[in-house]
Amino acid sequence: MTVRRHSLSWSERLYLPAVARGLAITLRAMFRPRFTRQYPEEPMPKYPVTRGQPRLVRKEDGAPACVSCGLCEYACPAFAITIDGGETERFIEREPKRFEIDMLRCILCGFCEEACPKDAIFMSQELELAGYTREEHVLGLEQLLRPASDFEERMRYVGEINHRWHATELAARARTGNKDAAAAGHP
């Protein structure tokens, strides 16, 4: 196949008009509002929807809210969570003896938060997750625990989402008489 080249005109061969056009674009951009960010001097804005490092909730009495039911471990698509359960003397008989999240595996999907029946794990707003060794990315129980007050905003947000889902589910169930109606609608 032959490619027909069209020969440049005189003004094109001069290049100067093109350079001037380019400079005009640059000039205009200098006065437009900026949308890049001077990270890390200017940190990312945080919203309740931000899904950062998953964290465990510490209850007022100092105990983890987690009961080591293992649902987050099972829900985790990246196999980032490892839990060993054990007996405790407290009223709720079971607590995690080991709870590890491998942040090199974690993909910050938030499935653990969604699976938890105890409101014990939440996605925090921490997104700076760098480190120098592999080991420091495997966070244990003590490193993960944060007081419940840290999650108030996120808890409210997650609660709202659950509530909305539940309402849809109930409406679908009432409409179709099928108890799995809404669930069946979402593969």
Binding site: S68, G70, E73, Y74, G85, E87, R94
Partner: peptide, 9 residues
């Protein structure tokens, strides 16, 4: 067996 493992695992 108490709390040793979850049975689905």
């Amino acid at each position: 067996f108490r709390f040793q493992a979850r049975v689905w695992n």
